[in-house]
Design a protein around this nucleic acid. Structure first.
Lengths: 140, 140
DNA sequence: CTAGTTGCTCTAGCAGCTAGAGGTTCAAGG
DNA sequence: CCTTGAACCTCTAGCTGCTAGAGCAACTAG
């Protein structure tokens, strides 16, 4: 059995975060010692590892909650889990595309900076004037 | 002179957001009508356009605040603005790299889903077991 | 002139934690 | 066995960047 600190260190999640996950119902209320301190077993270690990993991958807590409900009921169809993963994949592709055009613009900004005074520097101007923008976002 | 609603529509920023920017000092307190309603001129339109554009590009408000301070004082060296842009560029490249490995893993997850029950589905398993993870994040 | 939209201020809420106060319990060393 | 200090407890408040709502005042079009 692990204390909350050891669990946190084992999984790479901070102690207040674990308590927060319990509070919002992602983790079940654990056993307690006689002195009211939390005690965790293997199952919670795995469950928290799953949560941490999914968070690293950018899944919002709501999606993780769905995953966990599915995992708690393994006879149900895989389609739901698949659908969540597909949705996340689409969102990630979208974010990559937006970030790529952002990167292009930043590179242009840095390249155009003449290393003189602001008056000569295009960084501010590029950011202020939409006409100089190569990104995919719309004006107005 | 523009009302707050017209300014918002012109720039693509919601009305409460404009008031919020004023509250945190990104926009100066504007003129008011006799009836206490905000009135904006060209300068604020440009300034808000700048902010909106920079937000779209993923700059945090603190970085934007820095940019605006520089723009308000155009005799200073460009180096600071350049430095901010470089920092942002590095951060963006980092985010793109992380998202790319995330995309790979999600694609793998989706490809491995057997469209059967959860018991056969690797989505949950891949997320739970770090050994199946090709991403660059560390366990523990 | 009146109706309907837009504006005002203020407070509270969202995600996903993080930090602090003020106190208790546990584990290690002597 | 006792002490010390780290780790734990609960509770509240704060962070970013807004968004939503209440309850009211002012502006604009017909």
């Amino acid at each position: 059995m692990l204390s909350i600190g050891k669990l946190g260190r084992a999984v790479g999640v901070k102690v207040p975060t674990i308590r927060y996950y319990e509070q919002i119902g992602l983790l079940p209320p654990p056993e307690r010692t006689a002195g009211n301190q939390r005690l965790y077993g293997e199952k919670t270690l795995e469950r928290l590892g799953f949560i941490r990993h999914a968070r690293d991958l950018g899944f919002p807590l709501d999606a993780i909650r769905e995953f966990l409900r599915l995992a708690d009921d393994p006879d149900r169809s895989c389609a739901a889990a698949d659908e969540i993963a597909r949705r996340q994949l689409a969102a990630v592709n979208d974010r990559i595309a937006r970030l790529s055009s952002l990167r292009d613009e930043l590179q242009r900004m840095v390249a155009q900076c003449a290393h003189g005074t602001i008056a000569d520097c295009r960084v501010i101007e590029v950011l202020g004037d939409h006409a100089h923008c190569a990104a995919d976002h719309e004006p107005g």
